[in-house]
């Protein structure tokens, strides 16, 4: 088996008017850490709930660890661990009890690993959940999931509320799991985390996969940013095909270029006598904003310009 998650054409409706997932495709290979990105309300959590067999798909094909998440829910749950996005735990149990409880229920608790993780995440297991801060509750959920030796980890925004130190511990643990050949679906808004951990990403928008691939794949599809100084005025730049978001100030300009037009734009620039030039591949953040902004752009193009100007 080489595919941990194979979702194609997944449809999920809530009532007759709300389409939460609209022919979503998502593929996570065994042994990879897969980033699952998208704006709030895009359908990330709904997707994970379908994968857990909490929600029944209304259409499309869903395969999890080679099984059907609805039909084989329990058999599959023995092989996965889940960290919910909104960690709501039993207020009258202690952190230690919740970790053991979830591990027992899963049936895959590794006691020595539990001890190690409690130590690494600096968790006081004798405190009642009620008394934990948000970040500490999050740590309880993480330790509970990582204490289980399973094939697949479904993590729904697992680091919200963690301090940078704990964020680093989290990243270390995920790296170890990856080295160990586990598969991880990581839904997150923290781009540095996704960039550091993920082999491939899927960007979801309005219930559809907008983009999927490695960072390099995605970068190739995306514009390069250029900052350039020339001897002659740069005004013509705005008229060249393939140039976007240009800001020109005499002999200084900042703009982005479509991948297919880069060579031609360079040719034009040479004519204007380049004095200095910096080109950079788009950062994940830019990639991200471009996809997220398409929603906003539909409503008002101003928002895009705003974002560009802000940076």
């Amino acid at each position: 088996m080489t595919t941990a998650i194979a979702v194609s054409g997944l449809v999920k409706d809530f009532g007759s008017r709300t389409r939460a997932l609209d022919h979503l495709d998502l593929r996570v290979e065994a042994g990879e850490v897969h980033g699952f990105l998208g704006p709030n309300g895009a359908g990330k959590t709904t997707t994970i709930r379908v994968l857990l067999g909490m929600l029944r798909a209304d259409g499309g094909h869903v395969e999890l660890l080679g099984g059907d998440p609805w039909r084989d829910a329990v058999a599959l749950h023995r092989r996965l661990a889940y960290v919910p996005g909104e960690v709501n735990l039993w207020p009258n149990l202690t952190g230690g009890e919740v970790i053991d409880l979830l591990g027992e229920l899963r049936g895959t608790l590794d006691a020595s690993r539990r001890e190690e993780l409690v130590e690494r995440f600096q968790l006081d297991p004798t405190k009642k959940i009620r008394a934990y801060s948000k970040g500490n509750r999050q740590k309880v959920a993480l330790v509970a999931a990582f204490s289980s030796e399973v094939e697949l980890y479904l993590l729904d925004e697992p680091t919200s509320g963690l301090d940078p130190l704990m964020e680093a511990v989290f990243q270390d643990v995920v790296q170890e799991l990856r080295a160990d050949g586990r598969s991880i679906l990581l839904s997150s808004h923290i781009l540095s985390e996704v960039e550091a951990l993920c082999d491939r990403v899927t960007i979801i928008r309005a219930g559809r996969a907008a983009e999927s691939g490695t960072f390099d794949d995605l970068r190739h599809l995306t514009r390069t940013s250029v900052v350039v100084d020339t001897t002659r005025p740069l005004e013509p730049v705005t008229r060249w095909p393939g140039v976007h978001d240009a800001r020109v100030h005499g002999g200084h300009a900042e703009f982005s270029v479509d991948p297919g037009e880069l060579n031609r734009v360079l040719g034009h620039l040479v004519d204007l006598e380049v004095r200095s030039m910096v080109t950079s591949p788009p950062t994940l953040e830019e990639l991200f904003l471009r996809h997220y902004d398409e929603d906003i752009a539909g409503r008002g193009a101003g928002a895009v310009a705003e974002v560009v100007r802000a940076r």
Partner: peptide, 22 residues
């Protein structure tokens, strides 16, 4: 609330144990 048990009993890790505890 006071500090509680650092470990869960085995019984808590069953559906009935958890329900009963709740």
């Amino acid at each position: 609330s006071r500090p509680g048990q650092p470990r869960a009993s085995r019984f808590l890790g069953t559906p009935i144990g958890l329900t009963l505890r709740m």
